[in-house]
Design a protein around this nucleic acid. Structure first.
Lengths: 110, 110
DNA sequence: TCTTTGTGCAACCCTAGGGTTGCACAAACT
DNA sequence: AGTTTGTGCAACCCTAGGGTTGCACAAAGA
């Protein structure tokens, strides 16, 4: 069931792959699905799906739980808006920096 | 001077690499720097830095401009909070989906 | 002019990782 | 019992891409 493995880096790596994003989309719309079920809806093999799910698992973007003989996966939003915050903060920091530089340049115009 | 190449995918790929994030950090704090200058402050060769800068360029995360014989790079926040918004929206969508499913399950308890 | 110093281009090395197939095992179903 | 169906494990292929070195060329500086 592994709980939130934070770390923005892992999330970025996980989301960088298009197949993985596609996988997340279909998983989000089905709400709950096994690896084989997901493989049916994607243009890749089950094993490929499993590998991707593992990457997503330790980025905390999905959680897994057993139901009988099958393993069901589910999407987890938390690390996503944690990363969103991280990005927004970074963007803000860059903004401040750039404005500071611009002001300095205007004060001493070459 | 290439302007905003939006596309979230490119941004994610660009940010997925740790060296690239490090590069962006140092570039943000120096405000303005050439590839060689950046290479001095990183544990990699200039050519490696150049390659990374190109990736960042077509993600729109940096802009470049010539000053005499050297090319100066600069950080660009826009695509960053565009991506931040994208992530936040996605997280919100997932949230809605999960709650909808939960409600449905409570209405019809197995 | 000669010498530095920053770019650009190209070839190359090597691992990470996205993809596959095959098989063994366990849980359901008949 | 025997048969299906979903997982797990392992070996394997192959390209993308992160890293390097070497060299040619142009722009500053001496």
């Amino acid at each position: 069931m592994n709980l939130g493995r934070d770390d923005v880096g892992a999330v970025l790596v996980a989301l960088a792959d298009p197949t993985r994003r596609h996988l997340l989309d279909t998983l989000a719309e089905t709400g709950q699905a096994s690896a084989t079920a997901l493989a049916d809806r994607l243009p890749v093999s089950r094993q490929a799906v499993v590998k991707h799910l593992n990457v997503l698992l330790d980025a905390g973007l999905v959680s897994s739980g057993r139901a009988g003989r099958e393993v069901l996966y589910q999407v987890r939003p938390e690390p996503l808006d944690e990363s969103a915050r991280w990005m927004a903060d970074l963007a803000a920091a860059w903004d401040r920096r750039l404005h500071a530089i611009k002001r300095a340049a205007e004060r001493r115009p070459m």
